[in-house]
């Protein structure tokens, strides 16, 4: 009697396991995707990885040769570790055939691992550059490419670097390129804050033209978000750009209404504050 009970229990357990496995595989069957369904650009990650490797090897050799103290060499060694991590992540993140050196239980595990490794490396490299600004020119290309990374978390981290360095044309183009390729609403705040500072730093018309173009022809979510924020970019020097845009937008469209609110407030400000 007891034996029958245990055997029945065992059968139930096996059935339970089978049910779990079947239900999971059924869930995954739909919309099944490889680890990197997260999208966007940054061109070909494998070439990117090679580029990081080649550039960093050459640079590091040059820097080690030029280093004058143990402390400096220590910093460079730490930097080298981060560059290797970055290169490894970039190589493997989007290659489903890459042999992983860790146990990934699911595609999500692998994604989380590479995302974290990339974020940690970018933070460390940024900190190194802030401490050693003389190397900025040599490693900045990393942030310029990672700002266009397909993963919005990485993109946001790369953007942060640009908040610490002075505006220039190349940096502005990198930021605008990164923003134009993102559908992440939470990322728009940090990116537009950066653009705002560029706007005030002498790039007013360039930034405003970019914003106007994205409102008109950008992705759906970016277009609406920038329309909401457009007031921040309206000045006597740039207002014509937005006014022209408003005339081009389809009448009574949602974007046009949002932009109109910004224009109203701008004009109200001119009218009531006697500007």
């Amino acid at each position: 009697m007891k034996d029958r009970f245990y055997y029945s229990l065992l059968v139930l357990i096996i059935l339970g396991f089978v049910a779990l496995i079947v239900s999971d595989s059924k869930l995954s069957a739909l919309g099944d995707r490889s680890p990197s369904e997260s999208q966007q650009h940054m061109n070909d990650p494998v070439s990117q990885s090679k580029e990081i490797k080649e550039n960093s090897q050459e640079l590091m050799k040059e820097l080690f040769d030029a280093s004058e103290s143990d402390a400096e060499r220590g910093d460079l060694e730490a930097l080298q570790v981060q560059l290797e991590k970055l290169e490894e992540s970039q190589k493997c993140w989007f290659d489903p055939n890459c042999e992983l050196e860790f146990e990934a239980q699911s595609p999500l595990d692998a994604n989380s691992h590479f995302r974290k490794q990339t974020l940690d490396a970018l933070i460390a490299i940024k900190d190194f550059l802030l401490k050693n600004p003389e190397y900025t020119g040599k490693f900045e290309y990393l942030f310029s490419s990672y700002v266009a990374h397909q993963d919005d978390f990485v993109k946001e981290q790369a953007l942060e670097y640009f908040a610490w360095v002075e505006p220039n044309q190349e940096r502005l183009e990198a930021i605008m390129g990164g923003l134009s390729q993102s559908s992440s609403v939470p990322l728009y705040d940090s990116a537009t804050a950066l653009l705002k500072s560029y706007h005030q730093f002498g790039f007013g018309r360039e930034v405003s033209s970019f914003i106007s173009h994205q409102i008109r022809h950008g992705g759906f979510f970016l277009s609406r978000d920038l329309a909401k924020k457009s007031l921040e970019f309206m000045t006597p020097e740039t207002f014509d750009i937005f006014h022209r845009l408003q005339e081009e937008l389809p009448e009574n469209s949602k974007t046009s209404r949002i932009l109109q609110f910004s224009i109203n407030e701008y004009l109200r400000s001119r009218k009531l504050s006697g500007q």
Binding site: D32, S36, E37, N43, D44, F94, P96, N97, Q150
Partner: peptide, 20 residues
């Protein structure tokens, strides 16, 4: 292919042996 497999996979569709 790229939407599904990321930017390294634009030409995945030409490889019948690819994992996905």
């Amino acid at each position: 292919s790229a939407y599904n497999g990321g930017p390294g996979s634009y030409c995945r569709w030409t490889n019948s042996g690819a994992r996905w």
